[in-house]
Design a protein around this nucleic acid. Structure first.
Lengths: 251, 251
DNA sequence: TATGGTTGTCTATATCAATAGACATTTTAA
DNA sequence: TTAAAATGTCTATTGATATAGACAACCATA
């Protein structure tokens, strides 16, 4: 028995599906780069070889490579080939002590957390349930963008009980981290209680914030943090650029 | 301050991106259905309204709805509207005692696990590392397809130490579950050690197995299970149809 | 310096995606 | 019975996608 699993064999791209061939090919090459398939040479195979491999015209491959060059992943050099510029995928551990900045701190030189927006609002039924509040109680919502080495990694919306964490927006803007903002407001430690992970296509807003192209994938983590007594302190929905991260769960 | 977060505002679909408008719209509507946006009526808004909302021609919306009908998510009825047929998303808890069948057992009537292929092979460096073997030692690889109510949910490739689990293919085929197969072979209990989660576009093979369309998203879980002494017993790569599942991590 | 291998550019053609408009068909409700 | 609202079908046109071929420009190396 054999024939399934692993090996290519099947046609790798499909026509008439609403997704252009050049985009399907770009997605496959991006994936191959991030898994280290071309590490030996540091280059993508020649256009003619890729065209043969995917069963398309060389021009179609060129469209795919142009898109990847636009993303800054490869750089074509006439006469030599197409060089790989960037291939990282940040690992993001999800544990009881999950922290964004510390979690990937050693995998990137510069971590930043930008506050895009802050608002005080009434808790919806869902937010209230997660934070252990009554619907309509005041919560503070923060819209944040997290970057690693100037490259956007995730876009998060977080809610906090307004009474307990007044001023968390300013604290976040100053420290660029939830952990530091909590510490500033008198909460030295907290733990991750639950995390729900899904995946979806990027919306237009996420494309803009995370510098993605249509068809791009998001890993979505809905998380609830509590203080050490088990009282909810934060509920957040984080949208990660899926080709830049992986989650690790250690049990 | 306001304006970000939540509300639409921006153009929801983009042109000249390699992803056809009708597919982008289909993805948005599928997502809206699964989050319960149309639960009040049980129907999708009229085609003319969707066309207005997305800023496209009615025919383009019709292409999107035709694709969703093809997937069995909606059903158009002339004169009435477009009815929502299915909107479930299975929850899959990832804990120390993660088991596929038990995990979603109460969310579906009929759970099945089909053995697609079985092979004995030499462990690659990566597989050997995960299973605590020397590269080249014999392992058994199982290719399985898991279904909930006859709908494919995930496609998994699993490796087991060949010496300890000879005959696991037959045991899986009989019991349609890893847990039962392990029990059959004298391992009554085991635990999930680590799980890595990523997302990617579906390959052609996955599209076929999971009945997906191009552009569809996979949630990929790479998991290692051990026996109660901490000895690795299984390494697996499971590819889930992202629009049918969510993962939950309880810390 | 010559050659082979590679990316860059151009022209031409066929197919798919998207818009536009008109009208038919079916259901629901006035 | 009628009208309104919804999906179904058809024709026509435009722009994006994909193929095909030819050749130029550039790089590394023999």
């Amino acid at each position: 028995m054999a024939g399934r699993g692993g090996m290519a064999g099947l046609k790798q791209v499909q026509r008439q599906t609403g997704v252009a061939l050049w985009r399907q090919i770009a997605d496959r090459i991006r994936e191959a780069i991030s898994t280290g398939a071309y590490d030996e040479t540091g280059m993508v195979p020649p256009e003619t070889m890729l065209a043969l491999q995917f069963g398309v015209n060389r021009h179609t491959v060129r469209s795919a490579l142009a898109a990847l060059a636009q993303e800054g992943i490869v750089r074509a050099v006439q006469g030599r080939g197409t060089l790989i510029e960037r291939k990282e995928r940040l690992n993001f551990p999800i544990t009881r002590r999950t922290r964004f900045t510390a979690g990937i701190g050693d995998q990137a030189r510069e971590m930043r957390g930008l506050l895009l927006d802050e608002a005080k609002e009434e808790a919806s039924a869902e937010i209230a349930r997660w934070l252990g509040l009554k619907p309509g109680e005041q919560v503070i919502r923060l819209e944040t963008l997290r970057q690693a080495d100037k490259r956007p990694v995730s876009r998060a919306t977080s809610w906090f009980p307004a009474k307990r964490f007044a001023g968390i927006g300013a604290a976040y803007r100053a420290g660029e981290s939830i952990t530091k903002a909590f510490a500033e407001l008198g909460l030295p430690d907290y733990v991750r209680a639950t995390t729900e992970v899904t995946a979806a296509h990027a919306s237009a807003a996420d494309m803009a914030d995370l510098e993605l192209t249509p068809g791009a994938i998001l890993l979505i983590a809905k998380a609830m943090n509590t203080d050490l007594e088990g009282m909810p302190v934060q509920y957040s929905i984080s949208r990660f650029a899926a080709d830049r991260v992986q989650f690790t769960i250690e049990n």
